[in-house]
């Protein structure tokens, strides 16, 4: 555990809780992609199956349980409790175009051809693109609520911090996981355009809106 890893995990946790609180407090999930949230729930489920097979640390187990619990709570709020506020008409990204190729890739490129390992690899690849339905929704409606942009910013920061974590671990532990690193770089790149808008607009007190 190093400072980048810990800060990354906490940023990830902050993102998840910001989103849950936003939906809960406003009683609305307008502007939130339910599809991205389903993908994240799928990511956590397939990645954290090792909760059942191996114990790493109390911290590790606690965070995994919280991430999974929050992911399903978010999906529940969007598709059940506050379904009436869900932006289904704009949330039209075809997730099969992500899940199917990612599933195929997980079968082809993995560390070990075993069920749990393939599911872990699937979750890593899927996480790197799971935010696309959310970014697609924002590009369709042309705007995002400020609290939604804070959520996205925290998610992006989490990924960027993990890159620093891997640089640290490579130098000090000789740790090197090609699959995680390549997927992590892809995922971070997807946030770059958003980071630019966040810094130039949201941090200057403006609402995030895209030119028509």
């Amino acid at each position: 555990m190093n400072i980048f890893r810990l800060a990354g995990d906490l940023s990830h946790l902050a993102a998840i809780i910001i989103l849950l609180l936003k939906i809960w407090k406003t009683r609305s999930c307008a502007g939130i992609s339910g599809k991205s949230q389903i993908l994240f729930a799928l990511v956590f489920t397939t990645r954290y199956l090792d909760l059942l097979t191996s114990f790493i640390s109390l911290y590790n187990t606690f965070m995994k349980v919280v991430y999974i619990g929050c992911a399903y709570a978010t999906v529940y709020l969007i598709y059940m409790k506050f379904k009436a506020t869900y932006d289904g008409n704009h949330d039209t990204f075809r997730v099969e175009f992500l899940v199917v190729p990612v599933g195929g890739l997980a079968f082809l490129v993995n560390h070990d051809f075993s069920p749990l390992e393939i599911l872990w690899t699937f979750s890593i690849y899927l996480e790197s693109v799971a935010i696309l339905p959310q970014l697609f929704l924002i590009s369709k409606t042309g705007e995002a609520e400020t609290i939604t942009t804070h959520y996205l910013f925290c998610l992006g920061v989490y990924r960027a911090l993990y890159l620093f974590n891997w640089i640290w671990r490579f130098y000090f532990e000789g740790f090197f996981d090609m699959i995680a690193i390549v997927a992590g770089v892809v995922q971070t790149i997807l946030y770059c355009d958003f980071f630019y808008l966040y810094v130039t607009k949201v941090l200057k007190g403006k609402k995030l809106s895209l030119p028509a």
């Binding site: 097979t53 191996s54 590790n60």
Partner: peptide, 10 residues
């Protein structure tokens, strides 16, 4: 059934 590769990150 144990994982051959321990994944210690979240």
């Amino acid at each position: 059934y144990a994982l051959k590769i321990p994944h210690d990150e979240l």
